[in-house]
Every structure is written in structure tokens, then in C-alpha cells.
Design a protein around this nucleic acid. Sequence first.
DNA 1: ATCCAACTTGAACGATCATTCAAGAATAAT
DNA 2: ATTATTCTTGAATGATCGTTCAAGTTGGAT
Lengths: 193, 193
Amino acid sequence: MARPIQFDRKDVLEKAMHAFWDQGYCATSMASLVEITHLKPGSIYAAFDSKEGLFLAALDHYGKRSTAKIEQSLASADTPLQGVRDHFRQMAESAADPIAKRSCLLVNTALEFGRGNPAVLQRVNHHLGVIESLFLEALESAQASGELGEDKDPEALAAFLMASIWGLRVLGSTAPAPERTRSVVGQLLSLLD
Amino acid sequence: MARPIQFDRKDVLEKAMHAFWDQGYCATSMASLVEITHLKPGSIYAAFDSKEGLFLAALDHYGKRSTAKIEQSLASADTPLQGVRDHFRQMAESAADPIAKRSCLLVNTALEFGRGNPAVLQRVNHHLGVIESLFLEALESAQASGELGEDKDPEALAAFLMASIWGLRVLGSTAPAPERTRSVVGQLLSLLD
DNA sequence: ATCCAACTTGAACGATCATTCAAGAATAAT
DNA sequence: ATTATTCTTGAATGATCGTTCAAGTTGGAT
């Protein structure tokens, strides 16, 4: 029995996410968020409590977005292992595209906040954990079907794949050479054979 | 024929480096740098021009420090390939130690500055390039002596090792489990066999 | 039609930001 | 001892930071 919210929350989160992704948490000012979201300060604070609140919401938005993309890669492949390969090849290609976003917001956040902010780090670890479990699931399924050798350790491989993703993301923001990224992906995927 | 500088430049750079390493460039205020270095604002600006100038100097200090450490690992090993292995094992152990510094200042910097600041990114890429060339040298030397198989590609492996370092550094700042890091290192080193 | 709770607005807040600068202190050369 | 030059000091600068709030606006409930 009152005035309903005027803005589209998803749209605002998407815009805020890109701002934080591009510039980092600290370097993204409230003034720029006001400009980007076309909201006034009061509306932002009413909806998200604080700059950190808005950031956490944007982080969750990013997390869901990322896991959905991976789930799609895995689901649309012929076999589980092929899905994993597809996702990494796709990552290598997008790293070559200058328009595609650099690095990974989760990684950026983990590094920017250090051990300083438990609430933020817990959220980051949660999303990273979900992603890793998707890979682990695929690897275990591949092993069950005989696609992945019995001598392989799915858990160790999943952890390794996560570390590789992070490395690739950093690689993408330093060396823009496409063949370089493809070469690294080729190396790491050879561990799945 | 004038008053000489009173402070030890290396000492100041070391302190500033740790501050930037811990908190990032943006989150490290001039006020905190004044406190940490025990210099007054005027002295800092006289010696380093600006906050960014001090940061670049601290970044170079970090770069030299890092390359020296790797050179030592490689030089003190029995064989080139063993030196590479030693360095990664050592990295896995230090990642398990909560006292050891998290992540890598070069990577943090690359991610924090994005494509925004060419001067900073160029410096980061330079230091990363030096480190990669050290690994490449070791791998080529190993191949020449027959320690590394002729079927391996030293350049691709060196690029892969760099990506792995970055992944490990991120891993260290998210999941503190030591056996996890050791497992990842084991996986990636198996590519050298 | 009226009312009231919720949302929106935009100016204003004190705090902190990086930076400057004039005055004081210290040294090397004369 | 004097001078010339540089470094050090610490208060002050304007800008920008995240945040608040009182006034204005809107729309569902009665």
C-alpha cells in the first residue's frame, strides 16, 4: 500500500557489476554509480544499504551469471569431458577478444579485499566453490563413463582447473596475444587425456 | 653542497611495497604511507613526485626482489628442471603459510589497474616478462641437456608456468588448505615429465 | 476522493583524499 | 662564520569520498 519501486533491480545490478568489474571496488565511486545506474544516492541507499551492499549484490549477480554460463557449456556438450574442454577453448577465444571483459570479478575481488573483509571473501569463496563443484561433477561423471582414465584424480583435477582459470584470466589482462592463450589452454587440457 | 637526504630509500620502498601489497594501490592512503614510512608528505613528494611515483618505485623494488628469488632457486638447484620444480614446490609451501604474503603484487596491480594506466601496466609486463624469460632459459637449457624431452615446447611451457603461478597465487588467497595447493602443483609439474 | 506509507530527489554533511607550500633546519662550500 | 642550497616539517588546500535527510512525489488501500 505504497509507491512501488521504479527501477529494474536486475538492470541496476548489471550496470553496477560492469562498473566494479572494470574499475574495481575502491576505484568505483558512488558518484559514478549514481551516474551509471541513473539512480539518486538516496534510492541506492534505500535499496542496498551502502556501497558495500550494492557491491555484494552485484557480486552475487556475477556469480549466478558465471555459473549459468558454465552449466550451459557443460550441458550442451556431447560428453562431460568435452564440455570442460569446450569451456576452456571458449575462454581462450574470449581472452583474445578485446571487447570481452578482462579477468574475473571474483578473482579481482579476492585480491582487492585481501584478508580484510570476511563477509566479501566468504561470498567470493562460495561462488568459486559452486563453479569448482560443477567441474568436479563433470569429471566424476566422465570417469564413471570411462571417458576419463581411472588413474586420474577428479578432485585434484578440478582444483587444478580452477587455478588454471585464474591464471588464464590474469594472462588475458596482461598478454593479449591469442595464440599464447590457446597454447596455454592446450597444455593444461592435455592433463585430461 | 647542500643538505643530504636523511632517509634510507630502500627502507622506505620496502615499507611502501608491503603497504601496497597488503591493501592495494587505491586502498593505501597517503596518510597511511606517511605513518608507515615515517616521512612527512613533503619529503615523499620531493623524492617520488606523487603517490603513483612512489608506487612505481615500490613496484620496481618488488620486481627486482622477485626475480632475485627465482634466480636463486634456479641457480642453487642441481639441474635446470629441478630448479623449476624447486621453485614451485617452495611456492606451494609458502602458500600454506599464513604469514607469507598473499598473491603477487604484479598480478594484483595488473588486475587493479585494468587497461586504465599504460605506464603502470607496461612496468608490470616488463617484470613479468623477465620472470618468464628466466623460466624459458631454464627449460631450454634442460632440453639441451636432454633433461626435458625433445617433444616438449619450452616457450609454451614457460607461458603455461606463468599462468600457473598466477593461478597458484590466487589459490593461496582463497583456499588456505596446504594439501590442495600441493596437489595443484603436482598436477602442473607433471607436464614437465 | 482521501490518506498514508514508500519511493524519489538533490542538496548538504563531515571525513578523508592527494597534494602544495612557506617556514625552519641542516649541511657543504667559501 | 657566512652563505647558498637542499631537505624537512606540518599545517592548509580544494576536491572528492561515502552517506544522510528533509522535502516532494507517487500510487495502493480505504
